[in-house]
Write a protein that binds this DNA or RNA. Structure first.
Lengths: 320, 320
DNA sequence: CTGAAAGCGCTTACAG
DNA sequence: CTGAAAGCGCTTACAG
């Protein structure tokens, strides 16, 4: 019996007599044989692997997205190869190089620092799905969460509660998510006829530590505020801690709202009001879009709307 | 010029005349050529890839460990291939099969449900590093955090603060980490001459939700307690929320200590007292042990001691 | 239904 | 220093 026949049996790629089939299957089980995926990939010209560049494999934010990608792809015969870009252009290029050399069938990129120009160039070699930016280019599909609307919802919620002095802790300056959220914040203020006070906007770093420092700075500045909209949940965690350290209570003294609705946000004390953008769905959608591209189709995926999840970190301002 | 020469130039595997070298490098740059890793792996019989089975790619606990592995391996020319086992034996077997078919050079397994017997059998095909259990078998190296000592430290801390009625929220029953931590808890009580009250021990699920429910059950049972030792930080988060919902304050009414010292624990309100076992180091150590095994050496890696990080969720019991 | 052969893209003795 | 050849483990026309 030839190896060609064995190949055909394993892949069910041709009719084979039952006896042979049984014999081969018995041998496979006995010898614990597993086809070599690399050899298979070589012969077929495809690896059944999708590279995924996330900024940190242990990011609480992107984590659920990775899970979404993994589940989606795995059920369809693909496996995901995850790499951390570390918010660093060089590192991301290293990841791309590695992924390309492994001949992944496509690459999904969560955010990151690669220039649009560079992405467009990589897209000549492999289909790309990018999230966190809107980029139109051949062989690239981009999926963008509606950051501006989310920020608008969050800020409007605070306004409806009666807040007028609403501070904003931003992310890193040149980060697209951060600027869109900032925009939504200002638009909500404008819509309510509230003047935007630049003194109430301070930079953060998307992490807890930045939230702590920004809040302390805000408190020390003497500029009054009764509510705090944070660019993301991690920043909000830091803000809450800073308030606590300063003897202030959330939400009695200051209301806080975050963005992302991390899983752990509903278990904070108090549970955090936040804007939910299902990052798991983002992951699944990225996977779906990629498989569509691999099929030669134009992806027709869109993300669910962001929504505000009101919990206990926001309340009407104290009467003064 | 032959492809053999190109191969030698790329790998620096033989002396080549400078002109040729320059010419080839120019061509590589021009054509954006990248050697096909699959073909290379086929020819060499090694993939330079280490499979990693974690239970959930988005686990806040194991996340830092994945990062540790990734960094360690990447700096040494290896890449990590992550897969989620989902705390499910079938899924883990699926991961193993996939990894073996990709001919990874070794596999690192964080915890999981695979039987020791099965691991020993897989180890005949590929070197294994396992964490979260102590297993002695050929071609397997296991790395075990000192759960019992950590639990002992946590419980003793509570005792030293003056607590006598200390409840324990356990994890899933048959989970080894959980039983070792339970053991450490009882030993600390015994060492202090405090009788162990089984009514103060309730099961959880290693997640926030389990912590909420367990705490509520404990509260409703009417069995008094002034402190709560939780099998892990996520459980402690849930416990804190349940206390809050019940109108109780941590640490004034009930002290809470966790285990793992997740990054976000230091940003809780109040910051959580917890047992630190650097999971990042666990990751790096796993990578190091694996590379040693690949070199044919017997790994000589050991983990740093666990330590108690005292923060603000623990205090002396209220005078009654 | 099945086998021999060529090819996927690389590496490495083996000869020059 | 360099090329031709064989081989890594698979798949798939091409012939039977």
């Amino acid at each position: 019996m030839s190896i060609a026949t064995v190949s055909r049996i394993i892949n069910g790629t041709a009719k084979v007599s039952p006896e042979r089939k049984d014999a081969v299957e018995a041998a496979i089980a006995k010898l614990n044989f597993r086809p070599n995926a690399a050899a298979r990939g070589l012969a077929l010209g495809k690896s059944n692997t999708i590279g995924v560049i996330t900024q940190a494999i242990d990011s609480p934010f992107y984590g659920e997205g990775l899970r979404g990608i993994e589940d989606y792809l795995q059920q369809r015969g693909y496996t995901a190869l995850f790499m951390s870009g570390n918010w660093d252009e060089q590192d991301e290029e290293r990841c791309m190089a590695e992924l390309l050399s492994r001949r992944v069938d496509g690459i999904i990129i969560f955010s990151g620092r690669l220039q649009d120009r560079q992405l467009a160039s990589y897209a000549k070699q492999v289909p790309l799905v990018v999230s966190g930016r809107s980029l139109k280019a051949p062989n690239i599909f981009s999926l963008q969460v509606d950051d501006e609307r989310g920020a608008w919802l969050a800020t409007r919620h605070l306004i409806e509660l009666g807040h007028r002095r609403i501070a904003f802790i931003a992310g890193i300056l040149d980060h697209p998510d951060a600027s869109l959220r900032f925009k939504g914040y200002r638009r909500a203020l404008a819509d309510a006829g509230i003047a935007h006070d630049p003194k109430l906007v301070v930079p953060g770093d998307f992490h807890e530590e930045g939230g702590v420092e920004a809040t302390l700075r805000l408190l020390k500045s003497g500029n009054k505020f009764s509510a705090l909209f944070c660019v993301n949940d991690q920043t909000a965690y830091g803000a809450c801690l800073a308030l606590h350290r300063s003897g202030l209570n959330c939400p009695r003294d200051v209301s806080v709202v975050g963005f992302d609705d991390l899983h752990s946000s509903s278990y904070r004390v108090p549970p955090l009001t936040s804007v939910r953008q299902s990052i798991r769905v983002l992951g699944e959608s990225s996977g779906a879009a990629m498989l569509q591209m691999l099929q030669g189709e134009q992806p027709d995926i869109s993300l669910p709307q962001v929504e505000l999840i009101v919990r206990e970190s926001t309340a009407a301002p104290a009467k003064e």
